[in-house]
Each structure stands twice: as C-alpha cells, then as structure tokens.
C-alpha cells in the first residue's frame, strides 16, 4: 500500500463535464485529481478519449479546430480554461511527450536547447542541456555527438531525446501519450525506469494501452470507457483509484471485465 494520498498534494484538478469535436460528443463526466510527484496512468479501450482528456490538461486540444470543452482544469490554484489564460504559458509548465518520437530536424544539442531558448533560459545553456540529457538517461550515448542530427538516433533514443527536450525547461508536469508504443521491449524498459526516476521531480501523466506497464509504473490509474448503449460514442471515466486498487480490487464491474479480459 502506498501512503495515503491527501488533497494537499493535488497539482491538477480536472472536471471535464463535456468534451466535443464539432458536433461529436467525445467525452463526458471525467473528474480526476492528479497528485504531485506521482505517476498517473489512463487506460481504456481505443477511442474512449484517453488522449482527448490528456490533451485537455495542457490545452493541446486548442490546436484542433472545433474543439470545445465544458468544465474546468485547475493547475495549482488556476483554471487553465479561464478566460485570458494564455495556453502557450500553460504548455510551458505542463510539457508533453508524444506517441511517435518527434525530434526536430536539428542537432541533438539544439533539440534539447529548443525549449530553453524559447523561454530565455540561456544562461548555462550547455549545463542545462547536459542535465536534461542525463536525467533522460541519454547522456552517455550521445555526449560525443551532440552536434549530430537528432534524426540519426534510434527510435528509443529519439524518444528519450524528446523526453530530455520536454524536461529541459523544468515543467511541473509531463504528459505522455503512449510514449512506448513505437518502441521495442528493451527501449520500453528503459523509458519505464526513466519515468520512475523522474517522478521525484516531475508529476507524470501517461496514457498507455499496455496494462502491465500501467501496473508497473503508475501510482494512480484511471479507467476510461466508451458506452455504446447511450447511442453516441461518448467516453467517460469509469473508475479512478490507486493502481493496486484498480488492478486487484476494482469497484466497477466494467473495470473488472477490462482488467480480466486483457490479462487473459
């Protein structure tokens, strides 16, 4: 049993009542609190809205035309969906790592320095880049070729480069949307180790299709589901609890079915 979680260490408090893409009602009634310096995982069948909910947490969904959300997402004490909030500033504090590694077409060094330069954190630039690469467990593999293109790395290395790039400007929260789905088991193992190391400094929210992965790394797990009975294809949060509770003693029969089915 992990130590009891108190409401004091809640860093993000999301209350998503309704989430739309144009006329399509994608997610409903998803309320959850993300705890500081913990790893939170979202699991659930394809299309249930895991990515949509994750992208609400740093307003990445603003980039989608016709996207609309009813509800609130409090980051610390501020609602990031309140009027006059700058989504660009939100993303500065809540970083993101994507499913496909997406290094920029520039050198390894410049990739990691990109966010730092963007936010004017250029003092001790080289030290900060090194620190980020060390924390992303990539330093030893690239320290002699920092000037080489980031595209020349292997898939797993590219994903760690993207993690280094995301953590370099010291965000408070790191969102990861299926960060290992394009990687082999060894690279996946490395990233999982890395997440456990990183959680002492960053709060991590991860979407994964891999239930073992969720049970291995996550402290908290949320299960989302689409119920086709309601007519639409609207997903919602079925259950959200400590990972052990979700995997060993789920309260909702749907969660039990999903966990059991996936474990065979």
């Amino acid at each position: 049993m992990s130590p009891a979680l108190t409401t004091d260490d809640i860093i993000i408090n999301a209350k998503i009542h309704k989430l739309f893409y144009g006329n399509f009602f994608a997610v409903r009634d998803t309320h959850l609190a993300i705890h500081h310096n913990k790893i939170t995982a979202f699991i659930g069948p394809s299309g249930c809205g895991k990515s949509s909910v994750l992208r609400c947490l740093n307003r990445m969904n603003d980039l989608v035309r016709n996207f609309r959300v009813e509800g609130s997402v409090f980051f610390r004490s501020k609602d990031i969906y309140a009027p006059r909030v700058d989504p660009v500033a939100v993303r500065r504090h809540i970083g993101m790592v994507f499913q496909q590694p997406n290094p920029f077409a520039m050198s390894i060094f410049d990739n990691v320095a990109f966010g730092l330069r963007l936010h004017g954190m250029t003092r001790d630039l080289a030290d900060r880049v090194e620190l980020a690469l060390r924390r992303a467990a990539l330093w030893d593999e690239v320290k002699n070729k920092l000037k080489q293109s980031g595209l020349a790395l292997s898939g797993g290395q590219q994903q760690r480069l993207c993690i280094a790039r995301a953590i370099a400007p010291e965000p408070a929260v790191l969102l990861m949307d299926e960060p290992c789905s394009a990687l082999d088991p060894i690279a996946t193992g490395k990233i999982e180790e890395l997440m456990k190391d990183l959680k002492s400094r960053y709060t991590i929210v991860i979407v994964t299709h891999n239930l073992q992965q969720a049970s291995r790394v996550a402290d908290m797990t949320g299960f989302l589901y689409v119920d086709t009975k309601q007519g639409g294809r609207t997903g919602y949060l079925v259950e959200y609890d400590r990972t052990e509770a979700i995997f060993q003693d789920p309260r909702d029969p749907l969660t039990r079915q999903y966990i059991a089915g996936a474990f065979g």
Binding site: L63, V88, R91, G95, F98, F104
Partner: peptide, 12 residues
C-alpha cells in the same frame, strides 16, 4: 508532429 512538438514546448 513536428509542429505539435514545438507547441508542446510552449512555442507560439
């Protein structure tokens, strides 16, 4: 995904 990467880092 390159654009997304930049936006995700807080680029305008």
């Amino acid at each position: 995904r390159l654009r997304e990467g930049a936006y995700g880092l807080g680029a305008t």
